[in-house]
Amino acid sequence: MKKMKKLLFLSIAILSITTAIAQKKLYSTTTGTTTFDAGTGVENISATNKSTTSVFDAVSGQMQFKIMNKGFEFWSQLMQDHFNENYMESEKYPKTMFSGNITDIKKVNFSKDGTYPVTVKGTLDMHGVKKEIQTTGSFKINGDQVIGTSSFIVALADYNIEIPGVVKEKLAKTVKINVTCNYSLLKQ
């Protein structure tokens, strides 16, 4: 009788684990592109990071991003230094993270080519400040290729990033961020 109970317990445990695994379908990338534009028109203040790490679950819609701040490339060395030393304080806060959910993932048919608009909601953790954000984006499905894109605006003041008076004319109070990720299905 005891043996039967053990066997039953083991079967349930194995079944639960198998079901949990089967219910996830992860797509990932380590070479996503994130760009931002913080210019006011006086000067070009923009940068690109081509090493954005991201993963999402096509079943639950769970999504995460991670960006190393030092990976942003500017056209000017001085801007790059100011970004890392004065604004983002990259030594103290090396990463920018996003953790959230694609709220309408069920609308995306990953086995049918097309472009599917989605809504993403979650927490942006930048410069030591965590803040809830919501944005729209899209998934472009082309065979095995899954390209996720999104564009949103953040206010620098929300993340305790101060703009010194001397560059107030040049640096925008809000920054436009674009993310493009070419995802691959993770083999399990």
Binding site: K24, S28, V55, Q64, K66, P94, M97, Q188
Partner: peptide, 17 residues
């Protein structure tokens, strides 16, 4: 820098990642 898919950052999804 060095980073990647690490338990501390991707803890919610690390069971499969």
């Amino acid at each position: 820098g060095c980073d990647g898919f690490e338990k501390n950052d991707f803890n919610d999804m690390m069971d499969l990642l």
